[in-house]
Nucleic acid binder design. Structure first.
Length: 240
DNA sequence: GCCAACGTTGGC
DNA sequence: GCCAACGTTGGC
């Protein structure tokens, strides 16, 4: 079942040696486990960390952590690049070439991205985004066909995303399965989305808070319904 | 290839 | 717990 797949998001944790203590305070506060679904501080985490996270959230998104997201943007690199000797390229054509045009989205090693992965629901749609390439932008629509389960690559020493600190009894990292739905009617370049984002920051339009720009390094990001609808409507327009 | 943004690490 | 150094992401 594990299809070969090389998604983006090597996250900073890929070769960390000493996890725990410190980490538990910083990112795990915001991201660790499932506690944060509720709006209370995770058990055993520092309050200040939680508060900071909440603050950051409202600053960048203007939304509360309560809102449930229904749409996503997934970054993947369409051009070859070696990571620990392994090519991490995974373009939309690579996705289409998979059995059932389905892949497991492995290799995510960033806590915030992981938590978004874990909140994905069966059938939800996502944009497939090409990053770190000549023409960054949205190329396709995909959907979640299997909800979060342990990412086996964290236990595989040969894998570039191996995490020696993760225990089988309590895996740190998750993945979902995604299936190709269709190409967008045209390529929607980052530059165009960004131009709308800038305009909307001035006039309060739907892309004013889009995470692609406020959390530029996050490889898995949620979109609000309005953001999703607006971006999708761009495929009907003439390119410019 | 450059480098800004930003997350992580580790000394103090 | 602060913060400088460091490493990675990813646009350009």
């Amino acid at each position: 079942m594990p299809w070969p797949s090389r998604k983006r998001d090597k996250g900073a944790v890929a070769d960390k040696k000493e996890p725990d203590a410190k980490i538990a305070k910083t990112e795990e506060t915001s991201d660790k486990e499932e506690e944060e679904k509720s709006s209370k501080p995770p058990a055993g985490s520092s309050k200040s960390g939680w508060k900071n996270w909440k603050k950051k959230e409202s600053e960048s998104g203007g939304e509360e952590s309560k809102i449930t997201y229904c749409h996503w943007l997934l970054k993947s690199e369409p051009e070859s690049r070696l990571e620990k000797g392994v090519d991490v390229k995974f373009s939309v054509d690579d996705l289409k070439a998979q059995p059932n045009q389905t892949t497991c989205w492995d290799g995510v090693r960033n806590y915030q991205a992981r938590n978004f992965l874990r909140s994905m629901k069966l059938g939800q749609q996502a944009f497939f985004y090409h990053s770190n390439c000549k023409e960054p932008g949205i190329v396709a629509l995909v959907k979640i066909v299997k909800e979060a389960y342990p990412d086996h690559t964290q236990f595989d020493q040969k894998d570039p995303h191996y995490d020696s600190t993760s225990r089988k009894e309590n895996p740190k990292w998750s993945m979902v399965d995604v299936q190709f739905v269709r190409m967008t009617k045209r390529f929607i370049p980052l530059s165009e989305i960004k131009a709308h984002h800038l305009a909307h920051k001035a006039d309060g339009g739907p892309l004013k808070d889009m995470m692609l720009f406020s959390r530029q390094r996050l490889s898995i990001q949620p979109l609000t319904q309005e953001e999703f609808d607006f971006v999708l409507s761009l495929e009907e327009e003439k390119p410019h």
